[in-house]
Design a protein around this nucleic acid. Structure first.
Lengths: 164, 164
DNA sequence: CGTTATTTTCAGATTTTAATGAAATTGTGA
DNA sequence: TCACAATTTCATTAAAATCTGAAAATAACG
């Protein structure tokens, strides 16, 4: 079945992305699930332990890629992935900005600050390199923040203008 | 010293990016080195083995983030990192496209193809999801390809228009 | 309350990834 | 061709990440 293939392969691709295999597989599974799934269904489908399923489901919720659904008269939690591609993109961009880019900017600023008095000598070039990297990433964040708040159609229109 | 701090911390950040710590550290070291460095200098500075230094230096060369310099009358290889931020960005974008995005697109197309006859039933939504993801990533690649071939100034101008 | 379904945690086991160091290979100059 | 410097490989070891399974905690229901 194509869906099983997708789930398995998306998991492998995930590892190359620096995401753990199970988390990527669960994401793929939920993204292609017609209905929200509960922990036991995920466990069974992927043949993984409860602890593993639980941890990764909650991590996905932490990434805002998956939300918890409750059905009345049923005390289990069900999990549903965001399926809208633009929303997925926005979510991942926000999270990566927060987890990966902002800490880097802080480091760069700190290192630039610490060397700002070294007008001459080897520290000069280092200071400038830190500033250049900071400036670039900060500008990138600004662009990302703008795109993140755009509607899909507006972003598309903007990008289309670039493509000519 | 600020540079040592930068090298160490860039290494830690690297792991969150899915890059191995040593590779990120070597990259940070070379990016802030006033002169190209040889394997022994890298080994000594980071206190790592020859094999480790060698492997990661060559991986960085494979990423096109570092190039090999030879000095006449000296048979050692020296390593120099690209320092221009825009060029680093272009290089990383190209490599990530090739290593991470394109394989994903192939998977999505394959899965879409295999289910294109399922006009009704549960396969319908799956097929559409694969197509949506493919379309989005493919469009992203087009945009990236355009940006990648731009001069820094042009890209800046384009982005500035977005920011208003 | 007590019972039961469900979620959460976490110590230990397993798997994966990365690093070491020494041996093998390559290449240069005398 | 030989000696030597440097690079490369790779079996082994070490470290980090991930997974399991069962126990503990939580919370819904009568």
């Amino acid at each position: 079945m194509a869906r099983d293939e997708f789930v398995a392969q998306w998991g492998s691709l995930g590892t190359q992305w620096g995401i753990n295999r199970t988390m990527a597989q669960i994401h793929a599974l939920l993204m292609t699930a017609p209905e929200p799934m509960c922990t036991d269904e995920v466990m069974e489908k992927l043949e993984i332990s409860r602890g593993n399923a639980h941890t990764n489901l909650k991590d996905l919720v932490g990434w805002n890629l998956v939300r918890i659904i409750t059905k009345k008269g049923d005390r289990k939690e069900y999990f549903e992935a965001e399926k809208d591609v633009w929303k997925i993109f926005i979510t991942i961009s926000k999270e990566r900005k927060r987890r990966e880019i902002e800490p880097a900017i802080h480091l760069l600023r700190d290192c630039a600050d610490r060397t700002k008095d070294e007008a001459a000598g080897p520290g000069r070039a280092f200071h400038q390199q830190m500033k250049d990297l900071d400036e670039f990433l900060s500008f990138g964040v600004k662009v990302a923040d703008t795109v993140i708040t755009m509607k899909h159609a507006s972003a598309l229109q903007w990008a289309m203008r670039l493509l000519g």
